[in-house]
Write a protein that binds this DNA or RNA. Sequence first.
DNA 1: GCGTTATTAAACCGTATGGTTCAGCAGGAC
DNA 2: GTCCTGCTGAACCATACGGTTTAATAACGC
Lengths: 117, 117
Amino acid sequence: MVQQDSARLDRLFHALSDPTRRAMLRQLADEERKIGDLARPFAMSFAAASKHVRVLESAGLVSRRVEGRAHICRIEAAPLAEAEAWLSFYAHFWSRRLDTLEALLQAEPHLPPPATE
Amino acid sequence: MVQQDSARLDRLFHALSDPTRRAMLRQLADEERKIGDLARPFAMSFAAASKHVRVLESAGLVSRRVEGRAHICRIEAAPLAEAEAWLSFYAHFWSRRLDTLEALLQAEPHLPPPATE
DNA sequence: GCGTTATTAAACCGTATGGTTCAGCAGGAC
DNA sequence: GTCCTGCTGAACCATACGGTTTAATAACGC
């Protein structure tokens, strides 16, 4: 179970760790695209783009439907919720610090503002 | 600028894509740890664990302070906020779908429920 | 049929990754 | 000083990654 989750998170974060793949997701956020359309903006071969799509697919971030000879991709953002859930575990960690900072600032309003250089 | 952000996201997501490193962060969420303490739970050499810490460090997720011969690591969760900001761009994507589904269900309550096979 | 289009598959290449081992070095204990 | 501890660095290895090119497959236009 946990091991499965872990492997899914591996794939998910790995898929997101590449700028090309993030850009593809960005494209897919606008509308569904054929793989060829996804590939076009990037200075890389068709085959390379196709591989990227597969990585996104194996992470569950993209689903594909075949229409004739075209493979049409759609974003499946739900897995990102899993990533967000993971991150949220640590969220208190930075927000707590900000809270502390805020509390400090409110407690000592006489402090000079930080110099901006 | 954007390029810098992109490279930072690369490092960040890549750092998170390894289960060992995520487990290390989990440990550090409890309290600061020496690298040796971080390494102990894992069936790997000290050197390997040390490398993992460096990956976390280069992603900005961990900071280190040297005390005598011990290197003490602390979690720096702030970069995760950047990841969360990135994810949040796509957040409407899954929530919107749920909204749409809900709206559909409410608008047409006469529809038969989907068959469950 | 024939050619073009959209895509995958396979083989390859250079580099990065995650791991090892062994040597080295600095800090504390004695 | 000597010895252990905590850590890094360097060399190495197998595998994975991101890219290429070429070949193969399948669907559409004619």
